[in-house]
């Protein structure tokens, strides 16, 4: 498998998933016309990494806006990571938020609250 790189646009995030380090980064805003189309390859990559490489995953998420259908897609990817974690995989999520950005902080907290993998909320 290859690394996954997606360039940032005004309405889609920059994605940088590295298969060698297991560091997965998402950054920017997300309100695509069709969230499933955008997140499909991201979710497939995570599944492939889990089945082919099976090494630790650190997911760094640094967003400034996401619409509801993107939020749902992030939840879908958390569910895959949860399964991996439950079956013994090493998963850590860092959710970064701008210090004064209550909405993004809250979105992250709500997304993370029903999972057992470690998730840390980090203000910047």
């Amino acid at each position: 498998m290859n690394n996954l790189k997606i360039q940032k646009t005004k309405y889609t995030m920059e994605v940088n998933f590295n298969k060698d380090t297991g560091i997965l980064e998402m950054e920017g805003s997300s309100y695509p016309e069709n969230a499933l189309d955008f997140f499909g390859p991201i979710i497939d990559w995570i599944k492939d990494y889990i089945s082919e490489i099976s090494k630790p995953i650190i997911l760094n998420i640094r967003l400034n806006y996401l619409n509801t259908s993107s939020t749902k897609c992030i939840l879908d990817s958390f569910e895959i990571l949860e399964q991996y974690f439950q079956s013994g995989g090493d998963v850590k999520i860092n959710w970064f938020y701008a210090e004064d950005d209550e909405d993004i902080k809250e979105t992250g907290e709500e997304l993370g609250e029903d999972f057992s993998f470690p998730i840390e909320y980090i203000a910047y």
Binding site: T68, S69, K72
Partner: peptide, 11 residues
């Protein structure tokens, strides 16, 4: 998600 639904019905 429903199959033909683009959004997540959450808006």
């Amino acid at each position: 998600r429903k199959k033909d639904e683009k959004g997540a019905g959450l808006g």
